[in-house]
Amino acid sequence: MKLGVYNAILHDRPLPDALEVIAGLGLTGIEINTGGFLPAVHVPGMDDILTSDAARDDYLGQFEGTGVSIAGLNCNGNPLHPKPEIGQKHAEDVRRSIRLAERLGQTRVVTMSGLPGGEPGATVTNWIVNAWNSAALDVLDHQWEIAVAFWREMDRFAADHGVKAALELHPQNLVFNTADVHRLIEETGATHVGVELDASHLFWQQMDPVAVVRELGPLVFHAAAKDVRVNPDAARLYGVLDNRFRRLRPDEERTNLGGDEWANAWPADAAWDFVVLGRGHDTAYWAEYLRALHDVDPDMIVNIEHEDVSLGRVEGLEVAAGVLLDAARSIGVLSGTP
């Protein structure tokens, strides 16, 4: 098993400095963002790498002697968004990331299933949370028709390049739980589409990531280590679907999600928060999580994703790495460079 870091939290510094941070944590992998919601900060010459062996070799040379190697690519976005400036762009980013993975000797690209609009001609997405009425099932039928066609084609594209697409089970996507995964694979016949198991999004839905790993088995291609803390006082009032987000003004720092869409401000007293490993679930839990992943694939790559706003970039990674390394050592699953 190989442990690393998803690089988005280190986008504030150049790649060599990010590699130095990761090596200092005792980790051996870096999952590199290559488009979608976030820019490819650490692959500035992507187009050259795709066409030039010299550019590719120069890029890979930056990792030599660092003790850290590439541990998958990440292109999270919404390739099914009804606005072409978002959906078509993110879809092309996924294709380009798959081609880049092949060029770099990688076999995993993390992304999301995406979410279409609710009807033909829609311009906004529509996430059906609870399909208790027939109209909601009509929306889902429409969305699944779009998703199946897209992922059937993407599966063939990935297979042609020797790469597997690992979908993060992220709410506000069509595929966000085990039933959705099975449905997508059954309806597409996919062999190169599966799951990136990010425990955090399962925790707040009251799912058990260990049980999900064991249910999906070989459909789990890749994994992330990110924790969630449910805040009981807020949760008992607002539930885990707490929707008290605030629109950020143009003069505030905010993240563009494509086109004219932006991430919103999180509720100050949210029902749940992303937290550093150990603040939601203890080391013993993370050991069982790693054990389940190891049982699926002894060479599984697990990368820390740090989004705990109460801790600094490196500070949070230090805490998370300590918990994850302790968990891995406790069950004897730690291996070398990915």
Rank of each mutant, 00 (worst) to 15 (best):
M1Q: 03
Y6E: 11
L10H: 07
D12T: 11
D12G: 13
R13T: 05
L15W: 03
L15R: 03
P16F: 08
I22K: 06
G26S: 04
T28K: 12
G29N: 05
E31N: 15
I32K: 01
N33G: 13
N33P: 00
G36D: 03
A40P: 07
M46W: 01
D47F: 01
D48M: 10
L50F: 09
A54L: 14
A55S: 15
Y59Q: 08
L60M: 15
G67W: 12
S69T: 15
C75Y: 02
H81Y: 08
K83P: 00
P84E: 10
H90I: 03
A91P: 05
D93K: 02
S97Q: 07
I98M: 06
G105Q: 03
T107K: 13
S113F: 04
E119Q: 14
G121H: 11
G121T: 12
A122F: 09
N126I: 03
N126S: 14
W127T: 09
N130D: 15
N133M: 13
S134Q: 14
A135T: 14
L137P: 00
D138M: 12
L140E: 12
H142G: 03
H142T: 09
I146C: 05
W151F: 14
E153I: 04
D155C: 09
D160N: 13
G162S: 11
G162A: 06
V163P: 06
L169F: 02
P171Y: 01
N173A: 02
L174T: 06
F176L: 01
D180L: 02
I185D: 07
T188S: 09
T188H: 05
G189M: 07
G189R: 04
A190R: 08
T191G: 15
T191M: 07
V193R: 00
V195G: 11
V195M: 08
D198Y: 06
A199P: 07
H201Q: 13
L202K: 02
W204H: 14
M207G: 00
D208R: 03
P209Q: 02
R214W: 07
G217L: 10
V220L: 02
V220W: 02
H222K: 01
A225W: 08
A234N: 00
P250R: 03
E253F: 11
L257G: 01
G259K: 11
E261I: 11
A263G: 01
A265G: 06
A268C: 00
A270G: 06
W272S: 05
D273P: 04
F274R: 01
F274T: 03
V275L: 01
G278C: 09
T283H: 01
T283G: 02
Y285V: 09
W286M: 10
A287Q: 12
D295W: 02
P298C: 09
I301T: 14
I304S: 05
I304N: 08
E305R: 10
E305V: 13
S310A: 15
L317E: 10
E318K: 15
E318W: 00
A320T: 05
G322H: 10
V323C: 09
V323N: 07
L324F: 05
R329H: 15
I331P: 05
